[in-house]
């Protein structure tokens, strides 16, 4: 008996998007089948991982998350440099936590200075800049960052319906890439991409942020919306969804209490470092299976494991 495996043909493909400029630029996307379904499609660019840094010293990170960066967390530029030089980061994502208007509310010019210093320190490695999702403040901060980093092709986000005109305009004017954000909803994701297209953002300059839920905190919603997005892009040729997906997952993973609990607080939860790394890796795995092209991750050990897994998926059979 010879079994014929039912294969699916896909009419659509995900666009390829290049981030950064120069010889360290990274290209994502380009897949022509469901995630890792290499038996019926191509994946010219395997998923990538950006290492997360913060623009200020974190106050609520557990010891095991802080440990690899202990010597550099006081200085975002040194921190970014360490990620690149010691941990081999191919991309950096800076979270503009300090600009949160409900917290430190650091002004835009100071935030932009930090980003410039980080850019200087990472020597051409592509940079993602992630705001606080406060429309007014992000508009100020991200616009200024766009302007000061003209031509560096940073990925800038989250760009949401409420601030897309202002931020999107600067992204176009200063030649960056737009992270199109919507709250776990395929129709809203599409709507955002239509709005960005109308505004004049080029189709070569869009990444989709479907909004990421952590393990145990709604990951199933992200998982299914991402699967539906992939299916719509590939099988229904929905042009406004044919963009690579980015998942800002580290923040979600590491803010959960299960990533932080110490054995004194809950002896049944075992070793905190091993547990947290496993939670980060499992979250990454589910997002990869759902269609992520770009993961933002925190712990160097998690990143190493997930890279290894991606290689295994991409290895010749």
């Amino acid at each position: 008996m010879t079994i014929e495996i039912p294969k699916r043909t896909y009419k659509g493909a995900i666009r390829t998007i290049t981030l950064g400029a120069g010889d360290k630029a990274v290209t994502v996307g380009g897949e022509t089948s469901l995630p890792f379904y290499l038996f019926e499609g191509e994946r010219p660019n395997p998923p990538r991982i950006a290492m997360e840094i913060w623009d200020m010293e974190p106050e609520d990170w557990p010891e095991h998350a802080l440990e690899p960066f202990k010597d550099v967390v006081h200085d975002p530029a040194l921190w970014a440099k360490k990620c690149v030089e010691d941990y081999g980061a191919e991309m950096i994502c800076i979270q503009m936590i300090s600009t949160d208007p409900n917290d430190k509310d650091v002004p835009a010019d100071q935030a932009a200075d930090t980003v410039l210093k980080v850019l200087d320190a990472i020597n051409g490695v592509p940079l993602i800049v992630w705001g606080t999702a406060s429309h007014e403040k992000d508009t100020e901060v991200l616009k200024l960052i766009c302007e000061k980093t003209h031509g560096k092709n940073l990925a800038i986000g989250p760009v949401e319906e409420g601030d897309h005109k202002a931020i999107g305009g600067s992204i176009i004017a200063y030649q960056h890439t737009c992270i199109s954000s919507s709250p776990i909803d395929i129709n809203l994701a599409k709507q955002m991409n239509i709005l960005l297209g109308n505004l004049g953002v080029s189709d070569e300059k869009i990444l989709i942020d479907p909004t990421t839920g952590g393990l145990g905190y709604g990951i199933e919603y992200s998982y299914s919306v991402m699967e539906r997005l992939m299916l719509a892009a590939l099988t229904q040729e929905d042009e406004r969804l044919q963009f690579p997906m980015i998942n800002n997952m580290a923040k979600e993973v590491w803010k959960s209490k299960e990533a932080k609990l110490t054995p004194e607080e809950d002896p049944l939860m075992g070793d905190p470092k091993r547990r947290a790394i496993t939670i980060e890796c499992v979250t990454a795995m589910l997002l990869l299976l759902a269609g992520s092209d770009l993961l933002i991750m925190r712990h160097p050990e998690s990143i190493k494991i997930v890279k290894d897994i991606i290689n295994d998926f991409m290895a010749a059979n």
Partner: peptide
């Protein structure tokens, strides 16, 4: 670690029984 991640792949992709070498909080909880 890798074993736990591979196990999570089988959770999403269709296995009925998933055999693990460790029974520890750090793999069983996630």
């Amino acid at each position: 670690f890798k074993e736990a991640v591979i196990a999570s792949m089988f959770v999403a992709k269709y296995a009925g029984i998933i055999v693990l070498s460790e029974a520890e909080a750090h793999n069983l909880f996630p």
